[in-house]
Protein backbone atom coordinates (compact mmCIF):
# COMPACT_ATOMS: atom_id res chain seq x y z
CA UNK A 1 0.00 0.00 0.00
CA UNK A 2 2.68 2.46 1.04
CA UNK A 3 4.70 1.28 -1.93
CA UNK A 4 1.92 2.18 -4.32
CA UNK A 5 1.55 5.51 -2.57
CA UNK A 6 5.23 6.34 -2.88
CA UNK A 7 5.28 5.14 -6.46
CA UNK A 8 2.39 7.42 -7.34
CA UNK A 9 3.99 10.37 -5.57
CA UNK A 10 7.31 9.88 -7.27
CA UNK A 11 5.75 9.47 -10.69
CA UNK A 12 3.45 12.43 -10.54
CA UNK A 13 4.99 15.53 -8.98
CA UNK A 14 2.95 18.58 -9.88
CA UNK A 15 4.88 21.76 -9.45
CA UNK A 16 3.99 25.34 -8.70
CA UNK A 17 6.37 28.09 -9.60
CA UNK A 18 6.74 31.07 -7.29
CA UNK A 19 8.89 34.06 -8.09
CA UNK A 20 9.87 35.77 -4.86
CA UNK A 21 11.78 38.60 -6.46
CA UNK A 22 14.06 36.86 -8.92
CA UNK A 23 15.76 38.68 -11.76
CA UNK A 24 13.78 36.38 -14.10
CA UNK A 25 16.88 34.43 -15.07
CA UNK A 26 15.91 31.38 -13.04
CA UNK A 27 12.29 31.65 -14.14
CA UNK A 28 13.25 31.45 -17.77
CA UNK A 29 15.26 28.33 -17.03
CA UNK A 30 12.21 26.79 -15.36
CA UNK A 31 10.07 27.66 -18.35
CA UNK A 32 12.72 26.07 -20.55
CA UNK A 33 12.04 22.82 -18.71
CA UNK A 34 8.55 22.73 -20.15
CA UNK A 35 9.68 23.23 -23.72
CA UNK A 36 10.05 20.35 -26.18
CA UNK A 37 13.79 20.18 -25.61
CA UNK A 38 13.62 19.17 -21.96
CA UNK A 39 9.91 18.27 -21.62
CA UNK A 40 9.55 17.46 -17.95
CA UNK A 41 6.16 15.91 -18.61
CA UNK A 42 8.19 12.77 -19.31
CA UNK A 43 8.53 12.39 -15.57
CA UNK A 44 4.91 13.26 -14.94
CA UNK A 45 5.80 16.79 -13.88
CA UNK A 46 2.98 19.21 -14.59
CA UNK A 47 3.01 22.93 -14.00
CA UNK A 48 -0.07 23.63 -11.93
CA UNK A 49 -1.66 27.04 -11.62
CA UNK A 50 -3.03 26.68 -8.09
CA UNK A 51 -1.08 25.93 -4.90
CA UNK A 52 -3.94 23.63 -3.88
CA UNK A 53 -3.00 21.21 -6.65
CA UNK A 54 0.75 21.29 -6.28
CA UNK A 55 3.15 18.87 -4.61
CA UNK A 56 6.41 20.70 -5.17
CA UNK A 57 6.91 24.43 -4.79
CA UNK A 58 9.68 25.78 -7.00
CA UNK A 59 10.86 29.05 -5.49
CA UNK A 60 13.17 31.39 -7.33
CA UNK A 61 14.51 34.72 -6.14
CA UNK A 62 15.91 36.22 -3.02
CA UNK A 63 12.61 36.60 -1.06
CA UNK A 64 12.01 40.30 -0.62
CA UNK A 65 10.46 41.54 2.62
CA UNK A 66 7.12 41.96 0.89
CA UNK A 67 7.22 38.56 -0.72
CA UNK A 68 7.99 36.69 2.48
CA UNK A 69 4.41 36.90 3.73
CA UNK A 70 3.02 35.78 0.41
CA UNK A 71 5.48 32.95 0.10
CA UNK A 72 4.43 31.68 3.48
CA UNK A 73 0.74 31.97 2.59
CA UNK A 74 1.26 30.07 -0.66
CA UNK A 75 3.21 27.39 1.17
CA UNK A 76 0.50 26.98 3.76
CA UNK A 77 -2.15 26.60 1.07
CA UNK A 78 -0.47 23.52 -0.34
CA UNK A 79 -1.78 20.15 0.84
CA UNK A 80 0.52 17.67 2.61
CA UNK A 81 2.89 16.05 1.69
CA UNK A 82 4.64 19.03 0.16
CA UNK A 83 8.19 19.84 -0.84
CA UNK A 84 10.03 23.04 -1.54
CA UNK A 85 12.88 23.37 -4.00
CA UNK A 86 14.97 26.55 -3.86
CA UNK A 87 16.24 27.29 -7.35
CA UNK A 88 19.16 29.59 -7.98
CA UNK A 89 21.80 31.17 -5.81
CA UNK A 90 19.31 33.83 -4.71
CA UNK A 91 16.77 31.34 -3.43
CA UNK A 92 19.46 29.29 -1.70
CA UNK A 93 21.13 32.11 0.17
CA UNK A 94 20.29 35.55 -1.21
CA UNK A 95 22.89 35.39 -3.94
CA UNK A 96 23.87 38.71 -5.39
CA UNK A 97 21.17 40.44 -3.39
CA UNK A 98 22.54 39.18 -0.06
CA UNK A 99 22.52 41.89 2.59
CA UNK A 100 20.27 44.23 0.73
CA UNK A 101 18.02 46.31 2.99
CA UNK A 102 14.72 44.97 1.60
CA UNK A 103 15.69 41.36 1.20
CA UNK A 104 15.22 38.45 3.58
CA UNK A 105 17.79 36.45 1.65
CA UNK A 106 17.08 32.78 1.18
CA UNK A 107 13.89 30.79 1.02
CA UNK A 108 14.84 28.71 4.05
CA UNK A 109 14.52 31.75 6.30
CA UNK A 110 10.78 31.73 5.61
CA UNK A 111 9.70 28.19 4.83
CA UNK A 112 11.39 24.78 5.15
CA UNK A 113 13.32 23.82 2.03
CA UNK A 114 13.78 20.23 0.91
CA UNK A 115 16.28 20.69 -1.89
CA UNK A 116 18.67 23.42 -2.97
CA UNK A 117 19.72 23.88 -6.58
CA UNK A 118 22.50 26.48 -6.78
CA UNK A 119 23.59 28.29 -9.91
CA UNK A 120 23.02 31.73 -11.33
CA UNK A 121 20.88 30.65 -13.03
CA UNK A 122 21.11 26.85 -12.83
CA UNK A 123 20.82 25.13 -16.17
CA UNK A 124 17.57 23.30 -16.90
CA UNK A 125 19.46 20.02 -16.64
CA UNK A 126 20.55 20.93 -13.12
CA UNK A 127 16.98 21.76 -12.10
CA UNK A 128 15.73 18.52 -13.61
CA UNK A 129 18.45 16.60 -11.83
CA UNK A 130 17.58 18.27 -8.54
CA UNK A 131 13.89 17.44 -8.86
CA UNK A 132 14.57 13.85 -9.84
CA UNK A 133 17.00 13.45 -6.94
CA UNK A 134 14.43 14.86 -4.57
CA UNK A 135 11.88 12.36 -5.81
CA UNK A 136 14.26 9.43 -5.71
CA UNK A 137 15.13 10.41 -2.16
CA UNK A 138 11.53 9.53 -1.37
CA UNK A 139 11.97 6.02 -2.60
CA UNK A 140 14.69 3.65 -1.40
CA UNK A 141 15.64 4.24 2.25
CA UNK A 142 12.76 2.53 3.97
CA UNK A 143 13.62 2.85 7.68
CA UNK A 144 14.20 6.57 8.20
CA UNK A 145 11.22 8.59 7.09
CA UNK A 146 11.79 11.27 4.54
CA UNK A 147 12.40 14.94 5.35
CA UNK A 148 8.78 15.84 4.76
CA UNK A 149 9.34 19.48 5.72
CA UNK A 150 10.21 18.17 9.17
CA UNK A 151 12.84 20.84 9.60
CA UNK A 152 11.89 23.91 11.57
CA UNK A 153 11.88 27.04 9.40
CA UNK A 154 14.58 28.95 11.27
CA UNK A 155 17.18 26.18 11.24
CA UNK A 156 19.04 27.09 8.12
CA UNK A 157 22.36 25.36 7.99
CA UNK A 158 24.88 28.20 7.92
CA UNK A 159 27.82 26.15 6.62
CA UNK A 160 25.78 24.79 3.76
CA UNK A 161 24.44 28.20 2.90
CA UNK A 162 27.90 29.71 2.89
CA UNK A 163 29.24 26.85 0.83
CA UNK A 164 26.46 27.32 -1.65
CA UNK A 165 26.94 31.05 -1.80
CA UNK A 166 30.58 30.40 -2.59
CA UNK A 167 29.82 28.06 -5.43
CA UNK A 168 26.75 29.98 -6.45
CA UNK A 169 28.23 31.07 -9.74
CA UNK A 170 29.45 27.60 -10.61
CA UNK A 171 26.70 26.22 -12.73
CA UNK A 172 25.81 22.55 -13.09
CA UNK A 173 26.61 22.10 -9.41
CA UNK A 174 23.68 20.61 -7.64
CA UNK A 175 23.15 19.07 -4.32
CA UNK A 176 20.24 17.84 -2.38
CA UNK A 177 20.34 18.97 1.18
CA UNK A 178 19.29 16.06 3.32
Amino acid sequence: MTDTKTWARVKSPWVLHFNSGACNGCDIEIVALLTPKYDVERFGVKLEPSPRHADVLLVTGCVTQQCAERLKAIYEQMPQPKFVVAIGACACSGGVFEGNYNVVGGVDKVIPVTAYIPGCPPRPEAILDGVVKLLNALNPPKPKKQPKQAKAPEVAKPEAAVAQAAQGIVEEEKQVAK
Partner: peptide, 10 residues
Protein backbone atom coordinates in the same frame (compact mmCIF):
# COMPACT_ATOMS: atom_id res chain seq x y z
CA UNK B 1 -0.28 7.59 -10.81
CA UNK B 2 -1.86 11.04 -10.86
CA UNK B 3 -5.12 9.61 -9.60
CA UNK B 4 -3.57 7.61 -6.75
CA UNK B 5 -1.37 10.51 -5.74
CA UNK B 6 -4.32 12.85 -5.56
CA UNK B 7 -6.30 10.32 -3.55
CA UNK B 8 -3.54 10.09 -0.96
CA UNK B 9 -2.99 13.81 -0.58
CA UNK B 10 -4.29 15.94 2.23
Amino acid sequence: ADFIKLLTKE
